[in-house]
Design a binder for these strands. Structure first.
Lengths: 251, 251
DNA sequence: CTTGGCAGTCTTGTATACAAGTCTGCGAGC
DNA sequence: GCTCGCAGACTTGTATACAAGACTGCCAAG
């Protein structure tokens, strides 16, 4: 069957979110076209859609790359999520029982995935909680926005997360739902704020995602001197304006 | 000069937001391509980007149309704006003086445009207030989201607004800034909520947008004959009837 | 051994050709 | 007069061809 543009877009996005395609990966148009059995045109369409959603990025005449958000961009993503998700909880007046039940069920599924050690799906599940919340309390438009933002922060977690704290996140989710069940929306909003803050704080935003960035770090007068375990000396004459390197060349 | 894809996207968007291209207008690829002096490829790219931003919509093999949000979609857009903008005000702890000054200046410009009767720019200015706010208190990512949402609601206002209440909106903005200046962020958030609610309540969401708008558009001869040289005429390819909305394209 | 340059290869950017569907308008039939 | 059907024009959807820039690797000069 001939996959449509939306199919391709979805396939690539889910592969990225599932961790099968790490940040920084180059996505060649021709290879994807061969893979999906279509021409480059459709692949290009899908990539451009993903670009407007902030998932991939094009480097002129070099290729498409899965985004590697900088530390600043990471902070922006988390701030934006804090604004929207606390805003949602504070805007809502009351939570329908059906919504509460659905959220509780989701948290139960999360815990189950964590207990059974299903690493591949738990990251998706933890993100899905927030998407479910937006869907249940908000609307379709808001859900789309939250979905894309969650995708962003998921990507960020892949880049910067030194240790996964799935259990803690799931526990946070449980607390948020409990506050909602008690009718304490303001409290739920505060818990959500703290939750997103914890996730952000759990990252090592000073860690550089690519070795070139640490090179740049060496060239800049810096007070930070505890990294670079096996870094050869660049002898001073390194070209400073090469943005990053294509880390993976094989398929 | 050869306009880039981003140029085309921006030109079309600003023409729509300025009211030169009303909702429901068909945008033919070839005509736009001739107009901009490029091939259909670039126009298509721009249109697809605008589609992911919720500005235009493609009807298979019929053409691209400026979106005509339904009443439900209108409510979603306003709810989403309420969530995000009140959330922003409640998340921020303090407002830097420079931000306050900038916002006050913006409100002053609004009032001036209203007093001088500058109808064409005041709608943009009223929307820009919210974008400025997101930019000043939030970050770039949040600003992009608010910008697209504001574009949506601007389009909605064109469809449903029976009477413009520019003065009242500007006054609301003034009150919001005053509350911020007093350090009352919660109050500012409440005012923002009421403000957006007022704008939404001022619309007649029961009015059917389609036949009315396009008919009126057809009956009104072009009173303005000289606009920007590279600007497409709004009624160049007016569709006699508007397409029905594919209400849910969920998968 | 290092360094600078140059050609080849590979990738995206853009335009164009063709396929497939939709609407319009006219004419025949009733 | 009215309706149905069909052909033509017109529009988007998709693939492909070609142009232009970027990177790689080799080779010669110092």
């Amino acid at each position: 069957m001939n996959p449509s543009t939306a199919n391709i877009e979805e396939a690539i996005l889910s592969a990225i979110l599932a961790g099968r395609i790490p940040p920084g990966t180059r996505l060649g148009e021709q290879k994807l076209a061969d893979l999906f059995g279509v021409s480059r045109t459709r692949v290009r369409e899908a990539m451009m859609r993903l670009e407007t959603r902030g998932i991939v990025q094009v480097s002129a005449r070099r290729g498409w790359f899965v985004v590697e958000p900088s530390a600043d961009e990471a902070r922006e993503a988390f701030q934006t999520r804090r604004v929207i998700e606390t805003g949602l909880l504070q805007t809502v007046r009351e939570v329908p029982p059906a919504v509460l039940a659905s959220l509780k069920e989701h948290v139960a599924i999360e815990r189950q995935a964590i207990e059974t050690g299903d690493v591949s799906s738990r990251a998706c599940l933890l993100g899905d909680f927030h998407i479910h919340l937006a869907d249940a309390l908000g609307n379709r438009l808001l859900t789309e926005i939250v979905r894309d933002l969650t995708a962003r922060t998921t990507l960020i977690s892949m880049l910067y997360q030194p240790t996964e704290k799935a259990e803690e996140s799931s526990h946070d989710h449980e607390d948020i739902v409990a506050a909602m069940a008690a009718g304490d929306l303001a409290g739920a909003a505060r818990l959500m704020d703290e939750h997103i803050g914890k996730v952000e704080a759990g990252l090592d935003l000073s860690a550089k995602p690519d070795p070139l960035a640490s090179l740049r770090e060496l060239l800049v007068p810096s007070t930070f001197t505890d990294v670079a375990p096996s870094m050869p000396h660049p002898h001073g004459a390194a070209a400073p304006h090469a943005p990053h390197h294509p880390s993976t060349k094989e398929d």
